[in-house]
Amino acid sequence: GIATGVYFYIDNDNDYDRFRDAYKRRLAGFTDDEFQGISTDRLIDAQRTAQKNKDVSIIVALAFYLVNIVDANVDAHLKQFNVSDDLSLQPNFELNRIDSHPNYGISLKYHLK
């Protein structure tokens, strides 16, 4: 995802430079650019579109980078999580011998092999 965002950023940056150079040449009075059938207003619109696409590409690459960071942190956190069958959780009910009130609890049993 990050590489895709960077690829489209570079592609849109190259397009933006082409449109901008052609527009500047037209302002200088030259008419020999590669976009001869396109009006000057359309070149301005193409520059704006390419700039917007460059910005979106960077945002997408950064979003994938942030998701990658979150994923790495979750994986590192869960790496220490024990999923073996040696863990058991059982309810515990005992009767208090002095006043005959029930005591409720939960016991956790952990067995090492």
Rank of each mutant, 00 (worst) to 15 (best):
I58W: 00
I2K: 09
I44Y: 14
L112S: 12
E94A: 09
Y9A: 03
N82Q: 08
L87R: 11
Q80E: 04
A61S: 15
V70R: 00
D71K: 07
F64E: 15
E34P: 07
K54I: 11
D21Y: 13
Q90H: 08
L87S: 09
D71I: 05
L108R: 01
I69F: 02
A61H: 05
Q51M: 12
G5A: 09
N82V: 01
A63Q: 11
R48Q: 15
Y110R: 04
F35A: 11
R26I: 06
K52D: 13
V6G: 03
Q80S: 10
D86N: 15
A3C: 09
Y104S: 03
R26M: 09
D99N: 15
N82H: 02
Y9K: 02
A63W: 03
F30M: 12
D75G: 08
L78T: 12
L43P: 05
Y16A: 02
Y110N: 02
Q51F: 15
V56Y: 04
S84Y: 07
D33C: 07
L66W: 12
D21E: 15
Q80K: 06
T31E: 14
S57N: 10
A46G: 07
Q90G: 00
R42C: 02
Y23G: 02
F93K: 06
H77G: 05
K24S: 09
V83K: 04
E94C: 05
T4F: 11
R97I: 10
A76D: 13
D41E: 07
S84W: 01
D21K: 14
A22L: 03
R20Q: 10
N92S: 14
